[in-house]
Amino acid sequence: MTSSIDPVQNLAQLIACPSITPAEGGALSALQAMLAPLGFSVERPVFSEAGTPDVENLYARRSGNGPHLMFAGHTDVVPVGDEGAWTVPPFSAEIRNGEMYGRGAVDMKGGIACFVAAVARHLEKNGALKGSVSFVITGDEEGPSINGTGKLLEWAKARGEKWDAAIVGEPTNPDKLGDMIKIGRRGSLSGTVVVHGVQGHAAYPHLADNPVRGLVTLVDSLLYPVFDEGTKDFQPTNLEVTTIDVGNPAVNVIPATATATFNVRFNDTWTGETLMAEIHNRLDQASRRHKLRPGKSEPVNYDLNWRNRVSHVFLTHEEKLIGTLSSSIEKVTGNRPQLSTSGGTSDARFIKDYCPVVEFGLVGKTMHMVDERVALADLETLTQVYERFISDFFSQKT
């Protein structure tokens, strides 16, 4: 029997590696040991950037005559949290009642384990691929995502790599395997509003200027009115205030500054640039109509700082990729998957600039939770879906 053909064994090896972001933890070495016997050439570039941890990544390719299919994902995992709350050690890959427990079981070492097994089975049955398959695997998806997939794709492109389609193995299914394919993602934009006041005694407000009053006005302008009602393919744009802070330990002191941080998940009504302009406009208008302090006519003194990089909205229209995957899922599971753009961001936001990309993996109910786990039956089913997809994708004429 071909090595790596069993997704359960593959996943057990990956879970056993404590690859908490940004540590490699042995996970990429385990994956390399699975892929090399299958005829993949494997490289593991490390990327760096000032102020961020170095991150090791993996690029593996088995070449053939035909289209080039990318499978993308990450071996890094989030911290385990309260280890004492787990019913099994979080890196033990223990099996109980038909489920394997461990950090990364569904997000997303399980998807990687299944795709490796699918490729191994296809090669065992057919001896070769009618095209090329590459693995684009990062150790930086759960972290700042600076030294991971984005740089790995740039590195590979500079070496002459091109792809025709990509699947990201994130856990896309809400309830059962076959529920959902992600064919796009909303964009993400984050910022911080800092309102500047004048510190003073709470009993003498006329000698001070309370920035909290101004911040309340500005935040309200971001929350109402709604940005849009949604589009055919996307949910309504939504802004959430995630922190409000004045850093003030004293109850009788008016603070000097007040800060609010927000995140917006936006649809294709907006670009990053137009959304930034809208937020600026709302804050400017709100700062001028500030009426909370009687007798104060000056506008609210504020700064707006954008955080991180904008993740742009995208939607995949490639029928061969979407249709072939949908058909493969239906043939194996009996379910016709919903095509969705719901949820947060993923590394598909980088891949979209290189080739059409969709996401499909395991059921995500326990991702990031204590006792993260996956049904062994789902590992087998997902492997069968991936195997059928590989066969059908390469069998079609381009």
Rank of each mutant, 00 (worst) to 15 (best):
D303A: 13
D303S: 15
D303M: 04
L304M: 00
L304H: 08
L304S: 04
N305C: 05
N305P: 07
W306C: 05
W306F: 14
W306P: 10
W306D: 12
R307L: 12
R307K: 13
R307I: 14
R307D: 12
N308W: 05
N308H: 09
R309N: 10
S311K: 02
V313Q: 01
V313I: 08
F314L: 06
F314C: 06
L315S: 06
T316Y: 00
E318A: 09
E318R: 03
E319V: 10
K320I: 07
K320Q: 13
K320W: 03
L321M: 13
L321Q: 14
G323L: 14
G323K: 12
G323H: 09
G323W: 02
T324Y: 08
T324E: 06
T324V: 11
L325F: 06
S326Y: 08
S327C: 10
S327A: 13
S327D: 15
S328W: 04
S328V: 04
S328K: 11
I329N: 07
I329W: 05
I329G: 08
I329H: 07
I329K: 04
I329V: 13
E330R: 10
E330S: 13
K331M: 14
V332R: 15
V332P: 03
T333N: 07
T333D: 04
T333E: 02
N335V: 13
R336K: 13
P337R: 05
P337F: 09
Q338E: 14
T341G: 02
T341W: 00
T341H: 04
T341S: 01
S342K: 08
S342Y: 01
S342C: 04
S342R: 10
G343V: 05
G343Q: 11
